[in-house]
């Protein structure tokens, strides 16, 4: 009997030690991200700075600015996801419309990050599904989770080749990762850009189409169904949802996400249509994907292809095709950051 208790104590000690080693290394790894990347401020904070700079520039250039209508304090605190107006904190009595900001941005010929002299440093790639969550399954048995993981790996390698060393993946292998954990991971590495990779499944139609989403409400029934599918396994409760929505007073995040989505969609479609003329461009859309919800930085979800299309399924089984898609995504990211990777595809 004493042996039994001694053995049990040893097992307990061992288990505690293993957990201790794991937790210590997790801390080191996270600290590693902090140090390696020299932690820039998150883009959301930069966006605020952008607003300030724009306001100053507007004042200096004597552009017409619209006074802010007087509001009660309650109204000011009301969270807004998407609005046509941005309050510019540097100039408390003035505001500027999104259209004006866009005009300014176009005039300056500079993207947001360049205008502020800021770099995008930390890119997070999210390979959709994983573990027990297979995602869509093709007729030949190929699973969406494997395709997304492989493309994510190739994309990471490609981005690093293009000079973006700080690329992270929410999962590096076939692990089940909750959507909330993916968001938490992106936050922990202070992501500046977030791209979630998925493969579409359209059971009632044999078409192959590409579409890219950024977070926002949608009235499209099919899009809502798709969001429902991809949001399975989310650990968010309604309270979390409201809290996050309340934080999403950043119109700029939505605007940047839209730009980012457009760049991804353009690169994916233009390049893919060279190989397959029948492929459809379903464009950029808003959809309430939970994985895009919790982040304050430009974040999009790309449905890079259609697994329900038999010809496309066969293509997706080839390493070459998956590599091509990864390169198109890299081009989309690179173009969004305006550093130009197009030459590599000539």
């Amino acid at each position: 009997m004493p042996d039994f208790f001694a053995r049990k104590r040893v097992l307990r000690d061992r288990s505690r030690i293993l957990r201790g080693v794991y937790e210590e290394n997790l801390l080191i790894a996270r600290r590693g991200f902090n140090c390696d990347l020299r932690r820039k401020r998150s883009l959301s904070r930069r966006v605020l700075a952008y607003g300030i700079v724009c306001a100053v520039m507007l004042v200096l250039h004597g552009l017409d600015v619209t006074p802010v209508p007087s509001r009660s304090s309650d109204e000011v605190e009301t969270p807004v996801i998407a609005t046509d107006e941005i309050v510019v904190t540097a100039s408390p009595v003035k505001s500027v419309s999104v259209a004006e900001l866009r005009t300014l941005e176009q005039k300056s010929d500079l993207p947001l990050s360049r205008m502020l002299g800021l770099g995008i440093h930390n890119i997070v790639i999210d390979a959709g599904h994983g573990g027990d969550d297979l995602g869509a399954i093709g007729k030949t048995g190929i699973a969406e989770k494997d395709i997304t993981l492989d493309i994510a790996r190739k994309l990471k390698a490609r981005l690093q080749d293009l000079g973006y060393p700080n690329v992270f993946m929410t999962r590096e292998d076939d692990a089940a990762v909750l959507l909330a954990e993916r968001v938490a991971f992106a936050q922990s590495v202070e992501a500046d850009l977030f791209l979630s990779i998925h493969v579409n499944w359209l059971p009632n139609t044999p078409v192959n189409l590409i579409e890219t989403f950024y977070f926002g409400p949608s009235r499209d029934k099919r899009v809502l169904e798709l969001a429902g599918q991809e949001n399975r396994g989310s650990e968010y409760g309604l309270n979390d949802f409201k809290e996050i929505l309340a934080r999403l007073g950043t119109v700029m995040k939505v605007q940047e996400s839209k730009d980012f989505a457009e760049s991804i969609q353009k690169s994916l479609f233009v390049n893919s249509s060279r190989k397959n003329r029948k492929i459809r461009d379903n464009g950029v859309k808003r959809a309430p994907f939970v994985v895009l919800l919790g982040l304050d930085v430009p974040s999009v979800l790309a449905e890079i292809s259609c697994l329900s299309n038999p010809a496309e399924e066969l293509m997706l089984k080839t390493d070459e095709h998956r590599r091509d898609i990864a390169w198109y995504l890299a081009e989309g990211i690179s173009n969004y950051l305006n550093t130009g990777a197009e030459d590599d595809f000539q």
Binding site: V21, I28, R31, G32, D36, D173
Partner: peptide, 19 residues
């Protein structure tokens, strides 16, 4: 320099712990 060691080793392995 635990970080330097992680950097140096992690290039060659898929998952790593340092003790």
């Amino acid at each position: 320099n635990k970080l330097a060691i992680r950097r140096a080793v992690s290039e060659h392995v898929h998952s790593l712990m340092v003790v």
